[in-house]
């Protein structure tokens, strides 16, 4: 089940919530949707799930357009909306049965599917309560259970881990990872480590436009451009000598001494080359001992902040 989004635009009044975005999600891919509040994540999800029509552009799910046959697409999608709306006066099991029937799950399979969802989402203790009596975390689980009850090929989860405690978050992430092996998953979140932990690919969206698209690693490379190493050298006598020796390496662009420590430096390499080998050889040649060589990674937070505050 692939999802192809083509030049999608959605306006609320004169404000463009989603501005001409295009992307593609392949079968078995988990796409993490990142962006600040009001960036257009939820609107995009509402359009893919056929809740709202776009002003312009098209979404094709497995080749079927949302404009032509929304009923067919809705069957294949499991959707957990942003605020996780639920019928608080319904018992958990009755609610799951209601959703299963609306999703056209054959009557004979409904009890099995409900049992399966109760097990997968860990609802066993709470299954006889009404939804209004549940804590926020359990409500979130009910929301996930209803999204997956018909075993959909596509899962669209809008902030699936809000309100869960750390243990539950780990469980839900694991669950999403497992599901992502066979299913196509789009999930949105504010929590950056979460995207890294769950997603194959990250899409960062800001002011309705896509500002980055790729795996966590490629995004880092893009943002950083050049390699940054932190090194520490022991057994050297003169700091300036080490400094100028490092500067004279062909691959090195810039060297900074780290304050507070005599023989620690930050080494910026030139574009597209690595200085690790050269630094090591230099130390061997001068009988210095290299006690630290750490590549400094740009944090995802930094990338996110840079891309979305411009």
């Amino acid at each position: 089940m692939s999802i192809v989004v083509n030049n999608l635009t959605k306006k609320y009044g004169t404000q463009k919530a989603v501005d001409n975005i295009s992307f593609e999600v392949k079968t078995g891919e988990i796409l993490g949707f990142l962006g600040p509040n009001g960036a257009g994540k939820t609107t995009t999800m509402k359009i893919i799930t056929c809740y709202m029509a776009p002003n312009d552009g098209d979404v094709k799910v497995n080749g079927i357009s949302i404009l032509d046959n929304p009923e067919e697409i809705k069957k294949k999608i499991g959707y957990l909306p942003e605020s996780n709306p639920l019928y608080y006066d319904m018992p958990v099991l009755a609610y799951l049965e209601y959703v299963a029937k609306l999703q056209n799950v054959p009557d004979s399979q409904i009890p099995d599917r409900i049992k399966e969802m109760v097990r997968v989402c860990g609802l066993d203790v709470e299954k006889h309560k009404t939804i209004g009596e549940l804590s926020k975390g359990y409500r979130q689980r009910v929301g996930l259970a209803q999204a997956m009850i018909h075993d959909p090929e596509i899962l669209i989860l809008d902030e699936p881990t809000t309100g869960l405690d750390p243990n539950q978050i780990v469980e839900i992430r694991k669950l999403i990872r497992e599901l992502g092996r066979e299913k196509t998953v789009i999930l949105s979140t504010h929590i950056l480590p979460e995207v890294e932990a769950t997603s194959d690919r990250i899409l960062i969206i800001n002011n309705g436009k896509i500002v980055a698209d790729g795996t966590a690693d490629t995004l880092r490379k893009q943002a950083q451009g050049t390699e940054v190493l932190r090194i520490e050298i022991a057994e050297a006598t003169d700091k300036d000598e080490v400094f100028s020796a490092l500067m004279n390496l062909d691959t090195v662009d810039m060297v900074d001494a780290v304050s507070g420590s005599d023989f620690s430096f930050m080494v910026n390499s030139k574009e597209n080359v690595s200085s690790r080998k050269e630094i090591f050889n230099l130390c061997v040649k001068n009988n210095w001992v290299l006690t630290e060589l750490t590549p400094i990674e740009t944090k995802l937070e930094d990338i996110f902040r840079e891309l979305t505050t411009k």
Binding site: Y51, E71, I77, L86
Partner: peptide
């Protein structure tokens, strides 16, 4: 008001 309409209308029903 509660947003359940979104849940309902994203099911395969008209």
């Amino acid at each position: 008001r509660s947003g359940t309409i979104e849940l309902l209308l994203t099911k395969p029903i008209t």
